[in-house]
Design a protein around this nucleic acid. Sequence first.
DNA 1: AATCCAAGAGCG
DNA 2: AATCCGCTCTTG
Lengths: 296, 296
Amino acid sequence: MGDKQQDSVERPADGNKNQTSDSLPTDEDKHKKKGDPNKLTLLTWNIDGLDLDDIKERLSRLLDYLIEYHPDIVLLQEVISPIYQVLQQVLKPYHVLPGSDRSYFTAILLRKSRVQLLESSIVNYPTTKMRRNLLMAYVSFLGHPLCVMTSHMESMKPQSLERQNQLRTVWKTMREQPQDHNVIFGGDTNLRDWEVKNQGGLPEGICDVWESLGQPEDCRYTWDCVTNDNKDLPFPARLRFDRLFLRQAGKGSKVSPDGMTLVGLERLDDCQRFTSDHWGLLCTFVMKPLSQATPE
Amino acid sequence: MGDKQQDSVERPADGNKNQTSDSLPTDEDKHKKKGDPNKLTLLTWNIDGLDLDDIKERLSRLLDYLIEYHPDIVLLQEVISPIYQVLQQVLKPYHVLPGSDRSYFTAILLRKSRVQLLESSIVNYPTTKMRRNLLMAYVSFLGHPLCVMTSHMESMKPQSLERQNQLRTVWKTMREQPQDHNVIFGGDTNLRDWEVKNQGGLPEGICDVWESLGQPEDCRYTWDCVTNDNKDLPFPARLRFDRLFLRQAGKGSKVSPDGMTLVGLERLDDCQRFTSDHWGLLCTFVMKPLSQATPE
DNA sequence: AATCCAAGAGCG
DNA sequence: AATCCGCTCTTG
């Protein structure tokens, strides 16, 4: 309800299935809880823009999801130019920041009413064979300085070595940010668990958000060909490719993981496929003031 | 023999080309240079004590090599208890320091007349499945404090992850030594080049001695089943398993790589096999006083 | 004491 | 624009 006043999104065509509920007490409580304005909501999603089959319906559903969840920050991978154009034109409440202008690329979407863009930059992976990079946005969220990053790291098993190079770059870049910044990375890492072990595990000061939340089984596999048949693979494969890393600020308010859920689990009406071969990861964070932090 | 007085046995030519040129009688100078008492000589060798075939002849030849080259420091891997007993009883000029007392293990031999043992210790690899460890000796060489290390790191391809754990431990331990110590690691690392790349390459301050010497082809492969048929493998495989790492002291005299050559290239008279399936690496180092060091 | 390499094909 | 997993086995 109060939704309208703040962040209603314009859409050209609407098959409005997911309307915000009206005034039932329980629903309103729920809505209030879900819409806690102090929480930061972030969605990361590889939308498989390289798969052009059923792209219209899939893109339409993607927009529905974005409007439904209206995350404060959206991190997308495998965006292609036509999709980028639509995002820019349709998602008026968002600032759309592309990671490149050719082939396929990443994008950061910032909900203008909640997140102010201060600066953006790109870190190159010097040895990528797939034109991948690390896209960064310095923003202000409720007055707190925040650094947001996304990347679509080198794909496929044989590129393990390059992928691990990129992982080191990501972690190093996160650790180099100013101490008063919380730093959130989200993206399609293409990581296998053994590759993280291979790097000696998570470095000091960086956590894997899914692990911090207790490794919930229901959002472990973000690329799940057991359930998701978009790729029609003849074997069962499920991996946790999409991950979120967090480096908390060393002073000031700290961002802490609060919840995580998969997005995109519904088959589309027409083609009966899914929005992407990846699930999206919708994550909420709470801001913890310094006073609540554990004393040393 | 004339050996008695000190250390007058000849060595193989060392691979370095940067000889300081003199203008005098050749043979005597050469001999003097080769036996330069200011140089540190070090041999590292996996002697394949797990292969019991022809062990008597192979051990006998090993002793010959040690006596011939009389290195200041010897780092051995795959020593077994009976071999250890012989080394201790026969090599009177050496202090023999074992890395364990069961199964097969490493050993550090220190030439008493040149190298004084100050202290020794062992660093455990917490997750080794093969009882491997890192054996260390703190010594004094010509009055300079020196830390010498050896290890036989986790073997075989499938143990890559554990091996990389161990590599990080080795490098970390080397870097943690006092700044006035030169630190030399030598051993059978079982490393593939891509595993080093996987760790982001050599860390700041540590060099690979073979690389520092310009990657001489004639001592690249220390496990060379093309030439060495001790294992009678039905395929050609050659790898640089045995490596030396150096962390120079940050103050005082610095140890610098001077030359490197393979050892054990001759077939034994009787069995016509080699001393080990690995070649040994005989390496010389020079001490560079602070005054000769590159200014910052 | 045995093993041991690396790249590629075929399978579920 | 086409890929995509991980395991075992075979081959040189």
